[in-house]
Amino acid sequence: MAHVPFIAIEGPIGIGKTSLAEKLSAHFQFHLLKEIVEENPFLGKFYENIEEWSFQTEMFFLCNRFKQLEDIDKQYLRNGKSVVADYHISKNMIFAKRTLPEDKFDKYEKIYHILTADMPVPNMMIYLHASLDTILERIRKRGREMEQHIQASYLEQLAADYEDFMNQFEKLHPNIPVIRIDGDKVDFICYQQHLNQIMEQVSMNLKQLNCT
């Protein structure tokens, strides 16, 4: 049975998810799904005071990502049109567990499971990871003003949370291939050879999934 390709790219802040999603979209002619980030009215305040603004920030992201995926499912996946996304909605739980106090996290988790119960699941994951120094340098180069206030300790913990999440994801979804890319060694922005290698890995997995 052939599957409609649905690729999700994940990893910490500033690691290059959107850049890679754009390149894969152009190469494979897949629809590009980009998460809403800068439109979040609470994000700047969140980076300055995580405890005060975490619930508002996470709820905004959850509702918008839910709406995006609902639209993508109806307009593309159900009609046999391939999609590459620069996020996976389960990332919400990574951030919520880290930033929300216990009482608010309990409420958030219930809402999350209700909203995502019947959401489409990617059939391929690409996981970008790197050391803290590399992540900090890429955030600096990207130059988003609100991100310049992020504490290094928060980014370091987030990277560790992502690693735990992806290890758990592979256990829970053994049939979904995960392509791991080490950002300390691979720079697909500067080196075409690195990008070509990623494209080859994606192509190979698409063939194995009988997507092509």
Rank of each mutant, 00 (worst) to 15 (best):
F61P: 01
L33A: 09
K104R: 13
Q208P: 00
K67M: 11
K67C: 06
I150C: 06
C211R: 07
R142D: 04
N64C: 05
E58K: 03
M204I: 11
L206C: 10
I111T: 14
L100G: 01
P120I: 01
E156Q: 15
Y154E: 03
L24Y: 03
S54I: 06
I139V: 15
I15A: 10
T99A: 13
A2M: 14
Y87L: 02
N196H: 14
K107G: 04
K185H: 10
H113A: 04
E48K: 14
L62A: 08
K141E: 12
Y112S: 06
I36R: 03
Q56T: 01
K107F: 02
H173Q: 09
E200L: 13
M119K: 05
N175G: 07
E170F: 00
A117P: 00
T212D: 14
Y162L: 08
V121K: 14
S19Y: 11
D86K: 08
N210F: 07
K17C: 06
A152G: 07
Q56C: 08
P12I: 15
Q208K: 15
A26Y: 01
K91Q: 09
R144E: 08
G80V: 11
L155M: 12
I114A: 05
F66N: 11
D164L: 14
A160D: 13
I189P: 00
K17Q: 12
R142L: 02
P177R: 04
R144G: 05
Q56M: 09
R78I: 02
Y108S: 02
K107R: 11
R144S: 04
Y76Q: 10
M125R: 06
L172E: 14
R144M: 07
N79D: 09
E70W: 02
A26T: 12
Y162S: 10
L158W: 02
Q157H: 12
Q151A: 14
V37T: 13
M93A: 08
Y154C: 08
S19R: 10
I114S: 11
F55P: 00
K171Q: 13
H113F: 10
S25A: 11
N64E: 13
N175R: 11
Q197I: 06
R144A: 04
A2S: 15
M125Y: 01
K45C: 00
R140Q: 14
H129W: 09
H31D: 09
Y47R: 10
N205T: 07
R144V: 09
P12G: 14
T134C: 05
V83N: 05
L195N: 09
E109H: 10
F165H: 13
L43W: 04
A2Q: 14
E51M: 05
G183I: 01
I36L: 07
V83L: 00
W53L: 05
D161Y: 08
V4G: 04
P177G: 03
G80P: 08
F105W: 03
F55M: 05
K185Q: 15
F61E: 08
K104F: 00
A159D: 11
R78K: 15
K141I: 12
D184A: 06
M1Q: 09
L136I: 13
R140I: 06
A96E: 02
Y47C: 02
R138S: 06
E38A: 08
